[in-house]
């Protein structure tokens, strides 16, 4: 087994002979043979691969769970912010005529078994943006006269539904006169 070159070192020839004689001794063969060793190698490799697969599967499961849970939680959160709690507004209509008119308008939307004297449940939602902006423009242009009339009791005169036209409602009030803040006052007017 031992090669004869001495890598640049000078060794006594007698010691070289001894080394050669020792080299002729064959070390004992290990108990396992080649096939047994290869079998053990394969088994160790398989065990390692199985551990790796298990680890990868666990990681993938956790990732998928997170990927599914986060969007669902976000959706639920957004939905609760948008819808809020449903509000109930009830009150007598101002007169029978108006009530019947409103019922005829909303009748198509009511479920078939709904009673007419039941309070209408309104889901509070923002009015259509176009109406709000149009109303705002009108208020800016014409003053507060453009606002719809409020009921004297503070209660709505009828149940409002999303999409009701709040702008073109007829008003029976006299047009609002702007107080004159500047300019000449008439002699009889109190200042």
């Amino acid at each position: 087994m031992q090669d004869q070159h001495t890598d640049g070192f000078d060794l006594d020839p007698a010691l070289n002979e001894l080394a050669s004689a020792l080299g002729r001794l064959e070390p004992a063969t290990p108990s396992g043979d080649r096939d047994a060793m290869l079998f053990e190698l394969g088994r160790a490799n398989g065990r390692r691969a199985a551990r790796r697969v298990t680890w990868c599967t666990s990681l993938a499961s956790v990732l998928l769970a997170v990927l599914v849970t986060v969007p669902v939680l976000r959706l639920l959160d957004t939905a609760s912010h948008v819808s809020g709690q449903p509000s109930v507004a009830s009150g007598p209509a101002s007169d029978a005529k108006e009530r019947s008119a409103m019922q005829s308008r909303v009748g198509a939307m009511d479920p078939p078994g709904a009673r007419s004297d039941e309070p209408v449940v309104l889901v509070s939602s923002a009015p259509a943006p176009s109406s709000v902006f149009v109303l705002r423009q009108r208020v800016l242009r014409d003053g507060v006269d453009a606002l719809p009339e409020a009921s004297p009791s503070g209660l709505p005169t009828r149940n409002l539904r999303p999409g009701d036209n709040l702008i073109d409602r007829p008003t029976d009030r006299a047009p609002f006169e702007r107080p004159r803040l500047f300019g000449p006052t008439t002699p009889g007017e109190p200042s």
């Binding site: 087994m1 090669d3 890598d7 080394a19």
Partner: peptide, 13 residues
């Protein structure tokens, strides 16, 4: 050193 050199057949390096 002897085992490595004689039976292992390794160079001194």
């Amino acid at each position: 050193a002897i085992v490595l050199r004689v039976w292992g057949g390794l160079s001194f390096d």
